[in-house]
Amino acid sequence: MLLALAVIGVVYAALSPETGRAEATVSASVKDVTEGKRLFDQSCASCHGLNAEGTKTGPSLIGVGAAAVDFQVGTGRMPAANPGAQMPRKRPVFDDQQTKALAAYVASLGGGPAIPSKEQVDPATGDAALGQSLFITNCAQCHNFAGGGGALTGGKKAPDLHETTPSHIYSAMITGPQAMPVFNDTTVTPEQKRAIIAYIVETREEPNPGGFGLDRLGPVSEGLVGWVVGLGLIVAAAVWITAKQREND
């Protein structure tokens, strides 16, 4: 009985916020949806199917939501040049308006997380200190302590976060693109997401007080510089000091 109640609770909790947002998106603009459908048929349907139901080469997009489209298309990952393990960031094919239209169309197919609002992702209002502890436990294992990215298995990589917009960071967390796990709004609340964004943005914008940051790679680049520059210059000095001299020099 308890279990059944809990299950109902799960289903309700899972559906209610999403449907709410889906409605909001659907009501956005019928014009956008039509335009989105046209673009989808041109550029996306070959992999994702005519009705976004998915094919062998591309997953179903029903229910992925506008946020997923905004992230994938807005960062140029989609349309993919050649579908593979790693979908690299590249110059977006579609402009903002077209991306919005595509997002509206995909959202109209089955709801899903919406594109976050500007206020939702404003780094200035986020709590960076909270973001720090959330970032190192949930994000740094892939994206590195300074958001520099890192290696995954099978030739995949976690991308760096140096240029990712706050809105795309949010969308990525909520939709879990490619290999990235999902952090939905009920597990990591929008406010906590904003804290993470604040931390990422503040970290990447802050100067390196110690001089050149050496790509913020840590001991690997430090060791390289220590050997090549440090020891290299010192040995050059040793060569100068001990060099043989000509008779009259």
Partner: peptide
């Protein structure tokens, strides 16, 4: 090197907690 090359930026690593780790 001390003046112009940053080394061991512990403020970026954050304080130690056994539950967290950075790639690389």
């Amino acid at each position: 090197l001390g003046a112009f090359a940053q080394i061991n930026p512990v403020w970026l690593y954050g304080p130690f907690t056994p539950a967290a780790i950075s790639s690389g």
